[in-house]
Design a binder for these strands. Structure first.
Lengths: 174, 174, 174, 174
DNA sequence: GTTTAATCGAGACGGTACGTCCAGTCTTATG
DNA sequence: CATAAGACTGGACGTACCGTCTCGATTAAAC
């Protein structure tokens, strides 16, 4: 879809500040009305743009080595956040989410939940203390990188990702 | 300062969407120029509004009971995030931060670092495994609630705060 | 024709401002394309709507009393202009005419000329000074009411109509 | 005033169809809001543009020769109507007037009445039949040229102007 | 005690984007 | 096969704010 592509390009090139409906329409060669016909606003466009990129959430592999499996997924997440062009869409979506409750729900249900469920599924099989709350367990893996990314409190490297996994595992496992 | 009060009130009453420089000026009974004379933009105002509220970061108490001390601080953090009126300013600041690198640095240095340092200081004395990276340890306590708050993936209650602390402690301590 | 009826109704009910092609199509239960297939634009529709009303111009009666015959036709004209609902179509057509030369020619030839010719025909037989230019004579009867209607400079009553005729006759006759 | 000049130029160059608020703003180097701050809409701008041109209505001269005095004023009126560039503003104002009652009143009071009063004043002194209604008398001079201009039913020349005056005088005078 | 300078409120200004409406064209599916 | 339905590009609408820029009026300092 030309509109979603235009939105992604604008975000990658110039950031959220220059992502205007008019700019999207102009770049996509489309009338503004067409955009408003199909999307409620900028937030909805960004969400669809993100989903279309097809990070189609796949179940985590179960290699038998929990740490290895988690390292893979956390490294991937951290790497995406670390690349400004890749994370531009996520950043924009986060902004919209913060002042749009309806959008926030959709993002939660369509983007976040599937990702978190995929990790939960892997955690369920991997050996960990039975009393662990899986929701909180997932947040232990995702929350810290997200926090660091948003607030730029530290580097987002593979080593960091590994450290996050190790800490989390120490919490999960007996 | 009338301007910062006006900003806080507008955020509490109507949210970020209606926080405009003109609205702040009107409510504070001030000319727009006066605002621009002292602040670079909306973000700087919000930052000052937040800091003025005087959550002057104090060192965490050291009761000898690490869990109790951490529960206190995490519960307080979670409670503030859970209250829409209290967290409105933080929310607005987060939005600005996401599209303003300069502001992001200031927020990191003036708001976040002190809070995280305070927790780090307590962690340094409380008994935990020596190889723990303190920055990551703090993120383990703060990141998950922040993530949950921003993305509304679950309730922000005292029980949740306690769970976060327990998980983190399991990671820190041998 | 449903389309012309719809146009007339819209004009009578809401005036030129709300006469849009889309409104006409919607009210007539017709696709926009069907309208464009048969008419060049709004102006052409209004013209046809006006003509269909069938003020089929008839020759003026020649009762032998020139004043009586002219009073009849001028009163009728003035009465139609005085009624907002009746003159709505004429008003709309005038607007279109003013910014559409092609339409202006058609209006002149299909609407105006016949009406003026009818009056001219009666003037030819009625006793008047031979050197009178008939075109100007007709304008002397029609121009003032039209001017008064368009610019709302005075009432449009039967008495007024009679006054117009009397003045004109004073000019025509020796 | 740059805005009124821009409006006049656009009308002279391209006609009413291209007289948009945005075009006026662009040509005048002005924000749209500035226009809306001072004028209610296109009609009000055109009215002011017309008035600024300073056709400051002056009393008709009284040379003692009524025909000569009227010929002068009617010729001038007809000449202005005949020149497309000069009459573009009047044409545009007429269009607006036709679908804007409020504006119509202003045009009547600020533009038309003074012009008509000036002619009435001259008619009052010039020798004419006492029972003549002066309002209708003026319309007899102005209405026909206006009608001919709007509906393009004939040429607008000096000879025509003279003919109008002669017919009117025949009506006025004994 | 008067003059001068700085600061303030108020709000006009040139701009940019908003979200809506319609024009006129093009596409689809229905009868 | 023409039609209604309506999506499409395009462009103007009138509004909201942005950040800059005059304006007087009010204070405070300097003389």
């Amino acid at each position: 879809m030309a509109i979603l592509t235009a939105a992604r390009e604008l975000l990658a090139e110039a950031g959220y500040a220059e992502l205007t409906i008019e700019a999207i329409a102009a770049r996509a060669g489309v009338g503004k009305q067409t955009i408003y016909r199909w999307w409620r606003g900028k937030g909805a466009i960004i969400l669809d743009a993100l989903m279309e990129t097809g990070d189609n959430v796949e179940p985590l592999p179960d290699s038998g080595d929990l740490r290895a499996d988690l390292v893979a997924v956390v490294r991937a997440t951290v790497a995406e956040l670390a690349d400004p062009r890749l994370s531009a869409t996520t950043r924009a979506l986060t902004i919209e989410t913060l002042s749009n409750d309806e959008l926030a729900e959709q993002v939660r249900d369509r983007v976040l939940r599937p990702q978190m469920e995929a990790i939960k599924d892997r955690l369920r099989t991997g050996p960990l203390r039975p009393e662990i709350n899986l929701d909180q367990a997932v947040e232990l893996l995702i929350g810290p990188p997200y926090h660091r990314w948003m607030l730029r409190t530290g580097p987002l490297t593979d080593e960091y990702a590994d450290g996050v996994v190790d800490l989390a595992l120490a919490a999960f496992q007996k």
